[in-house]
C-alpha cells in the first residue's frame, strides 16, 4: 500500500484578469480514495486540479496537502520555489496531452525525475524506472521514443513517470480524452490498479463509467462553482441539481447511437 495524502481545499478563488475561473471552492479529497471531477468544458476542472500542485497560482483561499499549505507560507506570502518543488515531489500529475519528452526514450522519461529530483544514480534510476514501466505493462517498450508508441502507451509511460517518484497523491487531467476509443481501456485499467493500491487520486474525466465504478466520490463543477460533491450513485443516478441532470442528459445524448 502507498502512503496516501489528504487534500483540503477551502474557499478557493482563482481569477484570470477580471474573469473568475474558480468561485469559493470547498472540497475535501480523502486519503486513499478516488475523487472524480466532472462538469461541462470550461467549468474550471483543470484549473482546480492545477491549483492542487500550484501549477496554477490561486488568489484566495487555501489548498492544504496533509495540513501543509501549498504555494504560500501564510496569507499573501509566496512559498519559496525550493519548498514548492519539495512538495511537488510527492504529487504526481498526468496530463491530457501526455507531455512526454520526445527527445528521451520511455525509460529516460521515467528515470529523469529520479535522477534530477530524487538524486538517484543512473543505474538505480534505470532499475526503478524499469519497475515502474513494468507496472504499467510496458517492459518491452522501454527503449522506444514517444513517437514510436501509441497514445495509450504514451499515457501509460506518463503514469509510470509519475508513480516512479513514489507520490502520495495523483492528479489526472482528462487522461483518456486524447485517446482513440479502443485505447482508453488500457489506461483506465492502470488507473484502477493504482486506486486499488490505496493511492489518493483526483481525476478530471468524461468517462462516466470510470466515475461510476471506481470513484469514491464525484464532484460536479459548473461555471467555476462546485455544485455538488457526493457518492457516484447520488451524482450520476439521482442528481439533486438540475444543472447536473442537464449535463448528464447532454452527455448521454452525445454518447447514444
Amino acid at each position: 500500500m502507498v502512503q496516501a495524502s489528504a487534500v483540503e481545499i477551502r474557499n478557493l478563488d482563482k481569477f484570470y484578469g477580471p474573469f473568475q475561473a474558480l468561485k469559493q471552492i470547498d472540497l475535501t479529497i480523502p486519503p486513499g480514495k478516488v475523487t472524480c471531477l466532472i462538469g461541462p468544458s470550461g467549468s474550471g476542472k483543470s484549473t482546480l486540479l492545477r491549483c492542487i500542485n500550484f501549477l496554477e497560482e490561486y488568489d484566495a483561499g487555501e489548498v492544504r496537502i496533509d495540513d501543509q499549505l501549498i504555494g504560500y507560507d501564510g496569507p499573501g506570502r509566496k512559498m519559496s520555489a525550493r519548498k514548492l518543488r519539495q512538495m511537488r515531489r510527492s504529487i504526481g500529475m498526468v496530463f491530457q496531452q501526455f507531455n512526454l519528452w520526445p527527445h528521451m526514450t520511455a525509460l529516460e522519461n521515467v528515470a529523469e525525475g529520479l535522477i534530477r529530483v530524487r538524486g538517484l544514480g543512473k543505474a538505480d534510476a534505470a532499475t526503478r524506472a524499469a519497475e515502474a514501466l513494468r507496472k504499467v505493462g510496458l517492459e518491452d517498450k522501454m527503449q522506444n521514443h514517444p513517437a514510436r508508441l501509441s497514445g495509450g502507451q504514451q499515457q501509460r509511460v506518463a503514469i509510470a513517470r509519475a508513480i516512479a517518484m513514489e507520490p502520495r497523491l495523483m492528479l489526472f487531467d482528462e487522461p483518456t480524452s486524447a485517446l482513440d476509443p479502443e485505447l482508453v481501456g488500457e489506461v483506465l485499467q492502470v488507473m484502477k490498479t493504482l486506486a486499488g493500491e490505496g493511492m489518493t487520486m483526483a481525476v478530471v474525466t468524461h468517462e462516466m463509467g470510470f466515475a461510476a465504478h471506481v470513484a469514491d466520490q464525484v464532484a460536479f463543477m459548473e461555471a467555476g462553482e462546485l455544485v455538488a460533491v457526493d457518492s457516484p450513485d447520488a451524482i450520476l443516478h439521482n442528481p439533486s441539481d438540475p444543472r447536473i441532470s442537464d449535463f448528464l442528459r447532454t452527455y448521454h445524448e452525445r454518447n447514444a447511437f
Binding site: N53, L55, A81, R85, Q86, M87, R88, R89, I91, G92, M93, F95, Q97, N99, L100, W101, E112, G113, R116, V117, A158, R161, A162, M165
Partner: peptide, 22 residues
C-alpha cells in the same frame, strides 16, 4: 508546448534542469 516544462515542474524539477534537460 508549455506542457513540456509543466510536466517537469510538476515532478519538482528545478528551473535550471528544466532548461538544460527539457
Amino acid at each position: 508546448p508549455p506542457g513540456q516544462s509543466e510536466a517537469a515542474a510538476a515532478i519538482g524539477m528545478a528551473p535550471r534542469d528544466i532548461w538544460t534537460r527539457i
